[in-house]
Amino acid sequence: MRNRIAILAVAAALPLTGVTALATAGPAAADPNSSVVTVSGSVDDCAGGASPVKVSMTAGSETRVDNRTDLANTNSYSVTFTNIPKNTMGTTAIAIVSCANGSSYTAKSFTIMRPNGTVTSMDRVLKAPG
């Protein structure tokens, strides 16, 4: 139920905010002069509707964890990487979402890139498989 409410809320907010590519599968971008990149967004429940309690995200050699106590209520996460290298291939990131009932899922991987003219934060929706 919480997912349906979140989807409706996002659908209602999209026209107001001008956000058109909330869940695109394309590369993420970061400031070419900074190795710090914050990745944040919404996170799906696990199978059976179990609430997420932890998001572990790995990019390159760094792993960051968001396990705030309100993660289950907000279904939103935020992690900050401090060593995203500047390169032309980008850095592959992968997230594992752990839920209250002991289950977990691995979200689809994505790429963090640092081309010219971009920012140091990005939104990424973590979708449960299926």
Score class of each variant (00 low, 15 high):
residue 2 R to S: 12
residue 3 N to F: 11
residue 7 I to H: 10
residue 8 L to T: 06
residue 8 L to K: 12
residue 9 A to C: 11
residue 9 A to T: 08
residue 10 V to F: 11
residue 11 A to H: 01
residue 14 L to D: 06
residue 15 P to H: 09
residue 17 T to V: 02
residue 21 A to R: 12
residue 23 A to G: 04
residue 25 A to G: 10
residue 25 A to N: 14
residue 25 A to K: 11
residue 27 P to Q: 06
residue 28 A to F: 12
residue 29 A to K: 10
residue 29 A to F: 14
residue 31 D to Q: 03
residue 31 D to F: 15
residue 34 S to E: 00
residue 35 S to C: 13
residue 35 S to D: 02
residue 38 T to Y: 13
residue 39 V to K: 06
residue 40 S to Y: 14
residue 40 S to Q: 15
residue 41 G to P: 03
residue 42 S to A: 15
residue 43 V to I: 03
residue 44 D to I: 00
residue 44 D to N: 12
residue 45 D to R: 14
residue 45 D to T: 13
residue 46 C to W: 05
residue 47 A to W: 02
residue 49 G to Y: 04
residue 49 G to F: 00
residue 51 S to T: 08
residue 53 V to R: 15
residue 54 K to C: 00
residue 54 K to Y: 01
residue 55 V to G: 04
residue 55 V to Y: 08
residue 56 S to N: 06
residue 56 S to K: 12
residue 56 S to A: 08
residue 58 T to M: 00
residue 60 G to P: 05
residue 60 G to M: 00
residue 61 S to K: 06
residue 61 S to D: 04
residue 63 T to V: 01
residue 64 R to S: 05
residue 65 V to D: 07
residue 66 D to M: 00
residue 71 L to F: 07
residue 71 L to V: 07
residue 72 A to Y: 10
residue 74 T to L: 10
residue 75 N to L: 09
residue 77 Y to Q: 06
residue 79 V to A: 07
residue 80 T to N: 04
residue 81 F to N: 02
residue 82 T to I: 09
residue 83 N to D: 04
residue 86 K to M: 14
residue 86 K to I: 03
residue 89 M to I: 08
residue 90 G to M: 01
residue 92 T to D: 13
residue 93 A to W: 09
residue 95 A to M: 05
residue 95 A to K: 05
residue 99 C to P: 11
residue 102 G to S: 13
residue 103 S to E: 13
residue 103 S to A: 11
residue 104 S to H: 08
residue 106 T to E: 14
residue 106 T to M: 04
residue 107 A to G: 10
residue 109 S to G: 10
residue 109 S to I: 02
residue 110 F to S: 05
residue 111 T to I: 05
residue 111 T to C: 03
residue 113 M to A: 07
residue 113 M to N: 03
residue 113 M to L: 04
residue 114 R to I: 01
residue 115 P to Q: 05
residue 116 N to V: 14
residue 116 N to L: 13
residue 116 N to P: 14
residue 120 T to E: 10
residue 120 T to A: 14
residue 121 S to D: 08
residue 124 R to C: 09
residue 124 R to Y: 15
residue 124 R to A: 13
residue 125 V to E: 13
residue 125 V to D: 12
residue 125 V to N: 11
residue 126 L to Y: 02
residue 128 A to F: 00
residue 128 A to W: 03
residue 128 A to V: 06
residue 129 P to H: 03
residue 130 G to R: 11
residue 130 G to T: 12
residue 130 G to K: 10
